[in-house]
């Protein structure tokens, strides 16, 4: 049984349709990259999984259980965590409170404040400042730590490297194998194709709300990917 199964997903913002008959599968422990140009529907895919956008589908199930039209909070409690685009830390919460609130749903597991600080030592000294006082990289670390605190089996990363300096991006990407080693499945939405291909077991390339190409990174040539990406 796949961890996540999506068949024929349509997603909407009001009258605007962002995804058209989209199919998607994710196995346990697997890392999948979703790439595509702006407006291709990558973020919408993540929002549909977490119940944050109006969507219809034949199948939208997590561990065989339908999560279609479930409340976002319930989906998180099932073990799905999101690292949203732009980090979205809570400004009136300190760094540590931001981490603690990640564990709000109370799912048991291996992650704790202490382990997050071990993973991101830079955060330990900054634990009591407001989340918004951090640098972009530290904010992204906090956002990842916040997601880990819910002890998820699946983490959705939205635009992981967007707006970060290359050296910081490198640092962040070094953490992903550690998370993967815990058995956590990941969906990485990324505009930096090279980064995405590095970590992914499989790639989904989206174009204007539809699946343009999918496969293992090794099986896909640059030309095919850029054709799928740019629609040439």
């Amino acid at each position: 049984m796949s961890l996540l199964e999506i068949r024929n997903l349509d997603a909407f913002y009001g009258d605007f349709q962002a995804l058209f008959g989209f199919d998607f599968d994710l196995e346990e422990h697997e890392t999948v990259a979703a790439i595509g140009a702006n407006g291709a529907g990558k973020t919408t895919l993540l929002r549909a999984i977490t119940g944050m956008v109006a969507a219809t589908s034949e199948v939208l199930s997590y561990r065989g259980e339908s999560i279609q039209s479930r409340e976002a909070a319930d989906i998180v409690a099932l073990g799905v965590a999101m690292v949203p685009e732009g980090r979205r830390l809570f400004p009136s919460l300190s760094v540590e409170e931001n981490l603690v609130i990640g564990g709000y749903s109370g799912r048991p597991g291996r992650w704790s404040l202490e382990r997050v600080y071990e993973l991101f030592p830079a955060l330990r000294n900054r634990r009591s400042v407001p989340g918004t006082a951090l640098s972009g990289g530290e904010q992204q670390m906090t956002a990842i730590g916040r997601a880990l605190m819910s002890n998820p089996d699946l983490i959705l990363f939205d635009e992981l490297s967007l707006g970060l300096a290359p050296v910081v991006v490198k640092e962040i990407y070094e953490v992903l194998p550690v998370i993967k080693a815990e058995g956590t499945a990941m969906v990485v939405v990324e505009q930096d194709i090279n980064r995405a291909l590095e970590v992914a077991d499989r790639v989904y390339c989206l174009q204007e709300g539809r699946l343009a190409l999918t496969g293992a990174p090794g099986d896909l040539t640059r030309d095919r990917i850029s054709a799928a990406y740019f629609g040439t």
Binding site: T50, M52, E71, A72, A73, D74, V76, A77, A81, M82, P84, R88, F90, P91, S92, L93, E97, V100, I101, G102, Y104, S105, R146, S150
Partner: peptide, 22 residues
């Protein structure tokens, strides 16, 4: 109290923390 503040700051991200807004 944290859930109140988080919801006040950013309701949609708060939902992603497993906070049931209703």
């Amino acid at each position: 109290g944290r859930a109140f503040r988080a919801t006040s700051d950013d309701p949609s991200t708060a939902r992603l923390m497993g906070i049931n807004q209703k």
